[in-house]
């Protein structure tokens, strides 16, 4: 054995040692990885089961929200039916009161004619008899107090009609909340679609791309709908409509809508409302 050969052998032994050491490190890494895998697998299974359970409940949540909308709509229409009946009854009541006042007026006119006639008759009677007759006449004189009460009744009816109108305005909240519920429903359906996609991927089943998942159409509701009776939004709409109406192109098209209507620019709108 020569000197150079010994050096080669020594190098090979060092390399082998390095390989063995690396192998030990890699083995340790894989050992750790396997331990982690064994620990994580049941956990992943539990997460999967939990997602499956939650996901299966989402369509029911979505159905429940739709049912809430339908049931509140049905109840609201029942209330509107009652309000309409109330309005009709109020109108009938007003007509009846007016009819009664007209009849009463006619009767009073007749009574006044009779009183004038009796008064003429009293003038032809002896003093004592005339006094008795005049006393009787005073008892049948039409009183104006009834008329005061009767004339105030239509005012009460009008106020009741105003209250029914106010209730009708408040019932618009049903449409607004149904749009808010539709927005929540859309969110629930989106979450369900994504979870289903995730589960299909996990189980190796074929799944549709997320973009193709069917949910409620977001253009059918206004997610920003709110019940606000301040009138601010109506004022804004009125101001913009007025500005639009005064634009020259709009004035040129009285009866038919113009193709060249001039609308305020965003800068003009912002200036108008200080925003």
């Amino acid at each position: 054995m020569n000197k150079g050969g010994n050096a080669d052998d020594s190098n090979r032994i060092d390399e082998l040692k390095n390989v063995i050491n690396l192998g030990k490190q890699i083995f340790g890494f894989f050992d750790g990885l396997m331990r982690f895998y064994y620990e994580i697998t049941p956990l992943l299974g539990r997460i999967n089961q939990s997602i499956e359970e939650s996901s299966s409940k989402l369509p029911r949540a979505s159905d429940s929200l739709s049912r809430v909308t339908k049931e509140t709509e049905r109840a609201t229409i029942e209330i509107l039916d009652i309000l309409e009946t109330m309005s009709q009854t109020i109108e009938e009541g007003k007509v009846q009161i007016q009819e009664y006042r007209t009849r009463k007026q006619k009767r009073n006119d007749t009574i006044r004619i009779c009183i004038r006639y009796l008064d003429t008759v009293a003038q032809t009677l002896p003093v004592e008899d005339a006094g008795k007759l005049r006393k009787k006449i005073s008892e049948i004189t039409p009183e104006s107090e009834d008329e005061d009460i009767l004339s105030s009744v239509p005012g009460y009816f009008d106020r009741i009609a105003d209250y029914t109108s106010d209730i009708s305005i408040s019932l618009q909240v049903q449409d607004i909340t149904s749009q808010q519920l539709a927005a929540v429903n859309h969110l629930v359906e989106s979450v369900h679609g994504r979870l289903k996609h995730l589960l299909d991927n996990y189980s190796g089943a074929e799944s549709s791309p997320i973009s193709e998942m069917v949910g409620s159409d977001p253009s059918t509701f206004d997610a920003e709908a709110e019940y606000n009776r301040s009138g601010d939004k109506q004022n804004l709409a009125d101001a913009l409509s007025e500005q639009h109406r005064q634009s020259p192109a709009s004035q040129n098209s009285n009866k038919e809508a113009s193709n060249t209507q001039i609308l305020p620019t965003q800068a003009e709108i912002d200036k108008m409302f200080g925003s």
Partner: peptide
């Protein structure tokens, strides 16, 4: 007659040539 009441929506409706714009909830 709509719940949408922001400037951009109103302008879009006017551009579509609506004759009037009411924001819900509205009064008779």
């Amino acid at each position: 007659v709509t719940t949408r009441g922001i400037k951009e929506d109103i302008v879009e409706a006017l551009r579509a040539k609506v004759n009037g714009y009411i924001v819900k909830p509205f009064t008779p």
